[in-house]
Nucleic acid binder design. Structure first.
Length: 265
DNA sequence: AAAGGTCGCAACCGCGGGAAT
DNA sequence: AATTCCCGCGGTTGCGACCTT
């Protein structure tokens, strides 16, 4: 059964909000909060659906919104984050205080997309990323939608190197020109021996690979920043196993303006 | 000055995921 | 376990403002 959109209810108003409606919504939320968006309009006396109220509050009425034009720094930040995160506007907005995902999406489509297209070399990150790609073993080319955030992140450090032991023990067929280099994709697609079960779900392989390698990683739960310094070897596979560690890498990237190099022993 | 085209922004829509039942 | 509900997200649209001819 398909649920009817909430706004199709008779009597629900659509279109631009009036100042009076805005004030009703502000007054209500300031007094009672917004625990249940669906119930809110009825309780507040608004002829709007909950979805419309939520959108209006989040994108326009929230007191912590910055408003006004984006600064050059904010635009650069969006470009860099977009390169890493793609169209994940809410994730980008989470790193730009006072800005909404809708606002960022609009500014991307109206200004920044053109800017990047006209001058693709302008964001230094592109060059920097290429530089990193060149100096490391290989670039992760796998794309798994379910792991997109992690994968996109690590397409830049990209370089998720496999240990030499891993390469020699997994009986890999090398399709590349350099047999000492194995991408994660090649690992995941490696031919199976008879006694190895083949799982169609790449996620499983990916998870197994990660779990296997995380065991060798001295990861500090208490202080993720320590993790960077605790690679037993730069040839180990590492994958952030939660959002916190992903944020750690992303913050490093944002602060430094480039991806940190994996430490060598 | 007017008509047509383009831009920018606010709002809507449909979908997916997680929580609740 | 299945269904329903709600929220949040990303893509898209509508329309007023501005620009060009």
């Amino acid at each position: 059964m398909v649920r009817a959109p909430c706004c199709e209810k008779m009597g629900m108003k659509k279109g631009p909000w009036t100042p009076e409606e805005d004030q009703v919504l502000i007054d209500y939320i300031q007094r009672y909060g917004h625990g249940n968006w669906r119930a809110l309009p009825k309780q507040a006396g608004l002829l709007r659906c909950g979805k419309s109220c939520r959108l209006r509050w989040i994108n326009y009425l929230r007191p912590d919104l910055k408003r006004g034009n984006f600064s050059k720094e904010e635009e650069d930040t969006i470009i860099r984050l977009h390169e890493v995160l793609g169209n994940r506007w809410s994730a980008i907005a989470a790193r730009l205080p006072g800005r909404t995902d809708n606002e960022i999406k609009n500014v991307w489509h109206t200004h920044l997309k053109k800017r990047v297209k006209q001058n693709p070399a302008t964001p230094d990150t592109i060059r920097q990323s290429m530089k990193i790609d060149e100096c490391n073993e290989h670039v992760e080319i796998d794309s798994n939608p379910l792991k997109l955030s992690t994968h996109q992140l690590f397409q830049r450090p990209g370089c998720i190197p496999l240990s030499p032991q891993q390469q020699s023990s997994s009986d890999l067929s090398s399709s590349g020109t350099d047999s000492s280099i194995v991408t994660t994709s090649e690992y995941l697609n490696r031919p199976m021996k008879d006694d190895q079960s083949v799982d169609d779900d790449e996620n499983v392989w990916w998870e197994e690979l990660s779990a296997e390698k995380q065991a060798n990683l001295e990861y500090s739960e208490a202080n993720p920043a320590d993790t960077q310094l605790q690679f037993p070897s730069s040839s180990l596979v590492y994958r952030p196993h939660n959002d916190e560690s992903m944020d750690f890498w992303l913050n490093l990237y944002m602060e430094a303006g480039e991806w940190p190099e994996l430490p060598e022993l």
